[in-house]
């Protein structure tokens, strides 16, 4: 049986933990709001980019000499997995669910006899994946020093990937991130970015009705050469923003349940503490009374 002092200490420590989790929850809530507005603000750009790309790609597709970034290398032997996770833990299953999706994909690809290469964005994903795929990880991109996520961060990652693609290090690139659906639901998502999957059915349907005959300045292939890397950066930027919002959402709900659990624990321990205290008083009274009676 723990002494009264032990119980008091234990309650105090749980209370201190509860204060921390409560504070973390509130910080995550504030950051979530900011991340969510950032993710929503970035949406129009990505949407317009998709339309323009679909228009041009619809025209160039099938033609010989289309850029490799658009049509792929024609092989699917080497897969590049770009796994985006958070830099910090304590956010529920956020990091592990993205990593699990990536790991399952990597295992499936390797079972099919493909080569798998991994680039980790974010330290947490690296920590998890390095246990099983240490020799597959070719690069780790650290965003810990980045305070507010900017387009330039995504651009840097995109440049690295394009450089590797041009050196024919891989054939297909897939991006792993967590899509932000709501505070309680974040969906780990895999998206193929090289070659990009375009909404082809839509472009063809649109082409059937009224095709705007675009003029291009400069030529289509020159525009594509600029547009494709930028599209890649935009996709990565969107993934990073969605990830940031998801991370804060996941952290908020994880810390909310941690605070609630701490509350339950405090309640239970206070009851034990009070019972023990009463038992001690009763015991002392009995000792005094029986001592007096003996006289």
């Amino acid at each position: 049986m723990a002494s009264l002092k032990d119980l008091r200490n234990r309650i105090a420590s749980v209370k201190a933990t509860q204060k921390i989790t409560k504070a973390m929850q509130m910080v995550a809530a504030a950051k979530l709001r900011r991340a969510q507005t950032a993710a929503e603000a970035a949406r129009p750009y990505a949407e317009r980019m998709d339309t323009i790309l679909a228009n041009i790609a619809g025209k160039v597709a099938g033609q010989a000499g289309a850029p490799a970034l658009l049509s792929g290398t024609g092989k699917d032997d080497v897969h590049m997995l770009l796994v985006c996770t958070a830099e910090r833990g304590l956010c529920g299953a956020f990091n592990s669910s993205i990593s699990r999706l990536a790991r399952d994909r990597a295992n499936a690809l390797m079972a099919a006899g493909k080569t798998v290469k991994i680039i980790c964005v974010g330290r947490k994903g690296y920590d998890i994946l390095r246990r099983t795929f240490a020799k597959n990880i070719v690069d780790v991109i650290d965003l810990r020093t980045v305070r507010t996520l900017g387009y330039t961060n995504a651009e840097e990652i995109a440049q690295k990937i394009v450089a590797r693609y041009e050196a024919s290090e891989f054939d297909i690139c897939t991006l792993f991130y967590s899509r932000f659906k709501s505070v309680i639901a974040q969906i780990p998502t895999a998206q193929q970015i090289i070659p990009p999957q375009l909404p082809e059915a839509k472009t063809e349907a649109a082409a059937g009705t009224n095709t705007p005959v675009y003029e291009y300045e400069p030529e289509e292939d020159e525009i594509l050469a600029e547009l494709l890397p930028r599209n890649l950066a935009t996709q990565i930027f969107r993934a990073l923003l969605e990830n940031a919002a998801s991370e804060q959402g996941a952290r908020m709900s994880a810390m909310d349940s941690a605070t609630r659990n701490a509350g339950d624990m405090i309640k239970k321990q206070t009851i034990t503490y009070n019972r023990t205290r009463q038992a001690m008083i009763t015991k002392e009274l009995i000792e005094i009374i029986s001592g007096a009676e003996a006289l």
Binding site: A38, A41, A42, P44, Y45, R48, G150, Y151, A154, E217, P218, A233, T234, F237
Partner: peptide
């Protein structure tokens, strides 16, 4: 409409826009 990766900067009716094209 003028959009940057970070946000929608402008959206509305205008009369004339002079664009610095690559060519």
């Amino acid at each position: 409409e003028l959009v940057s990766p970070a946000r929608l900067l402008f959206s509305g009716e205008v009369d004339e826009v002079i664009v610095p094209g690559a060519e």
